[in-house]
Amino acid sequence: MDPITILTIGIGLASTLLQEAKKLGLVADESWSKYVDGGLHAMQTATQIVAHIADGSTSYDGLTAEEIEALLLPAEWSASEVRRLADEKAAAEGV
């Protein structure tokens, strides 16, 4: 998920929470400071999520030689269930 999507979701969530809080009478309509606090908190959360994704993205850089080999070694054809079933069907057809 790209940062903008995360940000949009975060802000959307904050708005929904604000609306619910208003319904419950917890937040007055003119209480912009609480609205901004909510938005700020959502963006801070989004920042943490993006930073986490960034860690994952750049983790390719930090792989050891053994990890690179393990990551890239291809699976046997029959390692996949659907391919194993297809092999069984092909064998049954006598090919």
């Binding site: 790209d2 940062p3 903008i4 995360i6 940000l7 700020l40 963006m43 801070q44 989004a46 920042t47 993006v50 930073a51 994704i53 960034a54 993205s57 750049t58």
Partner: peptide
Amino acid sequence: VLVLVLLVGAWAC
């Protein structure tokens, strides 16, 4: 915070 989010996004690439 918005600028920070965008910068972190760019750094992720």
